[in-house]
Design a protein around this nucleic acid. Structure first.
Lengths: 221, 221
DNA sequence: CACAAGATTTAAACACTGTTAAATTTTAAA
DNA sequence: TTTAAAATTTAACAGTGTTTAAATCTTGTG
């Protein structure tokens, strides 16, 4: 798919199409947010967007294409949050990131839950492709571990390539459990951070470890 | 639903029904194993079982009932494996359990992958119910942590109620990633055990921690 | 043994999906 | 304005899970 970025002609027709495309995706989002991922039905979507089914197929495509478009947006937002890493102690920047994510999810909790489930079902988060979403996101915790080792917080007895994915896994599991409705956003925060701090503590130098254990205790209260 | 356990009359009719029920479930399993979870279609299943669609509804029920029956069996098997805990050092019994599970999954990998995905989708693994599957299974790692603390392997700075669920989470995430086809059974073993050992190491006394870190190194080679 | 009552199985349809072919309308250019 | 291309619609197709009402079979009894 070629994405047009320079000097869009923006004829009346094309502007109209773009507007309709946006309408479709917006309605799809609200539909998912209000009634869940399974409730996204093409006819219903067409009704709400004020047009007919084949138009959707023409403008965007089938169901999977609609979901892909929505999830692509989601991934962009996540990447922005992840890129805005606070400088400071490792555990603080992890904590900030989890809180930023939770705050973001809270702005439209039902939608984000459904979107993550849809992403999982679409196999969008697979781990084998080096250019995939997973590879792009797991990179950061690995680097954070490397930095923490250089700063003397971690001993380095566990390779960053081992510790990083485990930390990312703690976040993923908490996110999934939240998305599946097993617990709420507050528990997501606590669960993710407990896991992350636990992973760090496994390789932490004594002082850092003390700090982490204290934080873990705080989280479970 | 009342389960009849004592002195089943076993009339000709009832024996026949039981046999057909078994046939249905067996065919459903092979269908899932050979073509995946999405390929379980009622008509196809009826054809393979040599009967018609409404009979399935009469004998077992709809699609969700069929899946529930299959998953109930799966859960029973898992519980048997979990119950057969080797005595010995904590990390060894965790390792044995993960290997037992992996070996069990290997006997019909496609089926177990599909079954776990179906279980997840059915919301069968939810965590709020104290009688639920999750609560039943998370109990064991919690107890294992408590024992390890008594034996002096863990310091006890992290409550078993915190550490246990994290350990169970490592297993769940690895299982999910395997079930979703993100990696194979060998990586499942490595991923689950790395996570578990990492969690233990966070609260381990020095000697035990050394042992765990050595095992983690072995796993990533 | 015959037979009626009751449970079981079947054929056929229903309601609802995602998707697409062909006809119609709208748009931009000649 | 005429005309050809593009976008939209009408209407259908093919495939789901599920259910209704009729036919069939099993069972205990006269």
């Amino acid at each position: 798919m070629v994405v047009e970025t320079v000097a869009p002609p923006e004829s009346k027709r094309e502007k109209n199409m773009a507007k309709r495309r946006d309408t479709i995706l917006r309605e799809a989002r609200t539909l998912i947010a209000t009634q869940g991922f399974e409730a996204l039905k093409i006819r219903e979507l067409a009704d709400r967007a004020g047009l007919t089914v084949p138009t959707i197929y023409n403008l965007i495509g089938g169901k999977s294409d609609i979901l892909a478009a929505i999830i692509a947006e989601l991934v962009d937002q996540l990447q922005i949050i992840q890129a805005a890493t606070a400088s400071g102690p490792v555990e603080a920047s992890f904590a900030q990131q989890i809180h930023d994510l939770a705050d973001h999810f809270a702005t439209d909790e039902a939608f984000y839950r459904a979107a993550f489930i849809a992403g999982d079902r679409s196999g969008l988060f697979e781990q084998s492709s080096p250019q995939g979403i997973y590879a792009r996101f797991v990179h950061q915790p690995i680097e954070a571990c490397r930095r923490a080792a250089q700063e003397g917080l971690l001993r380095g007895a566990i390779a960053p390539e081992v510790l990083g994915p485990q930390i990312y896994g703690c976040y993923r599991l908490a996110r999934q459990d939240w998305a599946n409705g097993y617990f709420d956003l507050n528990q997501f925060r606590a669960q993710a951070l407990t896991g992350i701090f636990l992973c760090l503590a496994a390789d932490a130098t004594p002082a850092f470890r003390q700090r982490l254990l204290a934080q873990i205790s705080d989280l479970s209260r």
